[in-house]
Structure formats: structure tokens, C-alpha cells
């Protein structure tokens, strides 16, 4: 095994790249869960975003247009979840699973003609002075714009939930929808908007996978990234800052195991490939064993004004 082949500056840079899709999806899902809705369809929305983003970017040779289309498509898909769970009061767990299955089918249907094509990827930014810094430049300031958008999004979500009135209403709806309803807030409307936001974020995350991270379209390419995003929300105890930490930790694990595989570590490949999932389980266990949860009190409970 040759660990010296791993360059620390490039390692940090690739961790940021591999964390971004999960971070985007997780921050969106956190807002959804803060409003009291459990959307298990992240995986389905992500992969739909991945395929639509890829198709649009390739067709119009514009990655930014691809990202916009991915966000729209995934939000449209999440709208079906919103209608089912908010207006038709279906079971959120079952509907989320259904959304994932629909998304997986839809994406491989749309993606067939695009298999094997090369993506039009985002250019790396060249920020004056910052990008030229010796090691820090490679690590932090030579990424594509979406890496910074995702970080900005985390900051915005944090500020929105903490400092704005709308954020307070959203949290109130998630903690006790009956009280929020009694105060005259539109519970269903707030939740639908949150679900749409979550969908758009998942779509961006998916498009980042197919346009930057891989960059190619292959069937089932999200490979559980959406589920890991769900786990990160639990890991983060529903706090924006911790979502970021969680996503970067998982990005780190993923990159590290790939580097170890490349360096020919004396660990079975199957174990290394499975390590992100095993570590997710491990983290979930530690979090739940600690017993501090902070889940929104109305999470997963359906709301109807009559009850």
C-alpha cells in the first residue's frame, strides 16, 4: 500500500466535490422535515434530477440550464408527493417509497438514449488571488460554482429558520400542526412549499452527481445517496450547520475508501465499497443510543383540519 500517493490538498478538494450532492439533498430534506413531513422519496427525486439535468445540459450544451431543469423536474415530482400526502392524506412512508420507485423507473426510461455520453460539466472557477494561494487555493477556491451555492444554501436555510418570521412559522407547523392551524397559519400550504423546496434541492444534488461528480449518466447512479442524505438529517439532529458537517464527513469517507482502493490497501474491496453504508449505520446507532433527538414533534403525522 502506498499512502504517499494521496495528496492531502487534492483529497480535501475531492471531499468537497463528493459531499456536495449529499449536502444539497440533505439540506432540502431538513427543511421538509422541519415542516413536519417525512419524504422518503429523496433517492427518487435525486435520480430524476440527475437524468433530467444531464439530458438538458447535453442537449443545450449548458450545465447551468441543466441544473435549473433538474431542480424543476425534481420539484415537479415532489409535487405529486405533496398532493398525495397533504391533500389526499396518504401514508407518508409508503408514498415516499412509491416516489423513489417511480423516480427510479422514470429516470432509467428518460436516460436510455443518454447512456455512455459525456457530460457538459461546469468550469472550475478561477477567483483572483484566492485560487492562486499555495495549498488553500487547490483545496478550497478552485471549485465549480455549485460547491459554493450549496454552502450558501446551508447558510441561507440556517438564517431563514433562525431569524425570519416565515422560518418560525415553518418550525411551528412542524412542531405542532394543530396549534399552528389554530393560530390561523396555512399548515398544508407551508408544507407543500417546503416539499417543493426539498424536491428542488434533491434535484440539484442529483444533477451535481451526473454533471460534475461522475460525470456521466448510468442507470441507478445515485446508489443510495438519497438515503444517506436522509440519514444525515437524523445525524444532524435537524440543524443546518450539522447537516454540513455530516455531509462532509460522509464525503470524506467515500473519497477515502476510493483512495484506499486505488492505493491497493490490504482490505477487501467489498468492505471498502460498503464502508459508507456501514458507517451510516454506525453513526445512526451512536446518535440514537445517545438519546438526544430533536426531531420535529409532528414529523410524519398527517394533518386534516377536521381532526
Amino acid at each position: 500500500m502506498d499512502l504517499s500517493s494521496i495528496n492531502p490538498a487534492l483529497l480535501v478538494a475531492s471531499i468537497m466535490i463528493s459531499a456536495t450532492p449529499i449536502l444539497l439533498a440533505a439540506i432540502g430534506e431538513m427543511v421538509v422535515e422541519k415542516s413536519g413531513v417525512l419524504n422518503l422519496g429523496v433517492e427518487g427525486m435525486m435520480i430524476t434530477g440527475a437524468v433530467v439535468g444531464f439530458a438538458v445540459a447535453v442537449t443545450f450544451t449548458s450545465p447551468l440550464l441543466g441544473f435549473a431543469a433538474a431542480a424543476l423536474a425534481a420539484a415537479a415530482l415532489s409535487l405529486s408527493f405533496a398532493v398525495l400526502t397533504q391533500y389526499l392524506l396518504s401514508n407518508q412512508v409508503a408514498t415516499g417509497l412509491g416516489l423513489t420507485l417511480v423516480g427510479l423507473g422514470l429516470s432509467s426510461l428518460i436516460g436510455k438514449p443518454y447512456e455512455g455520453m459525456k457530460a457538459v460539466t461546469l468550469p472550475k472557477l478561477d477567483i483572483p488571488i484566492l485560487s492562486d494561494l499555495p495549498i488553500l487555493g487547490t483545496m478550497l477556491f478552485r471549485h465549480d460554482i455549485m460547491v459554493y451555492v450549496s454552502l450558501l444554501l446551508v447558510a441561507l436555510v440556517w438564517a431563514f429558520l433562525k431569524y425570519t418570521r416565515a422560518g418560525l412559522i415553518l418550525r411551528a407547523v412542524g412542531e405542532s400542526h394543530d396549534s399552528a392551524h389554530a393560530l390561523g397559519y396555512k399548515v398544508v400550504r407551508v408544507r407543500v412549499l417546503a416539499i417543493l423546496f426539498g424536491g428542488a434541492c434533491a434535484g440539484l444534488g442529483g444533477a451535481y452527481l451526473s454533471l460534475v461528480r461522475v460525470p456521466q449518466w448510468t442507470e441507478g447512479m445515485t446508489a443510495g445517496a438519497g438515503w444517506i442524505a436522509l440519514a444525515i438529517v437524523v445525524f444532524a439532529s435537524w440543524r443546518a450547520g450539522r447537516v454540513m458537517i455530516g455531509a462532509y464527513l460522509f464525503g470524506g469517507v467515500t473519497v477515502l475508501q476510493l483512495n484506499l482502493q486505488a492505493a491497493g490497501a490490504a482490505v477487501p474491496v467489498a468492505l471498502l465499497s460498503a464502508s459508507p453504508y456501514l458507517i451510516t449505520i454506525l453513526v445512526l446507532v451512536t446518535i440514537s443510543a445517545r438519546g438526544v433527538h430533536g426531531a420535529p414533534a409532528s414529523l410524519g403525522r398527517p394533518f386534516h383540519a377536521s381532526s
Binding site: L84, A94, L99, L101, V102, L106, S108, L109, E219
Partner: peptide, 17 residues
């Protein structure tokens, strides 16, 4: 072939609806 996968997913969706 993926059309059938979508078909099966839709079935669950309509059922829940």
C-alpha cells in the same frame, strides 16, 4: 424495459391516492 418499472411504481402511487 424501464417503462414497466415506472408502470409498477405508478400503480402504488394511484393506490395510495
Amino acid at each position: 424495459g424501464a417503462a414497466i418499472q415506472l408502470f409498477q411504481g405508478m400503480l402504488l402511487f394511484f393506490l395510495l391516492a
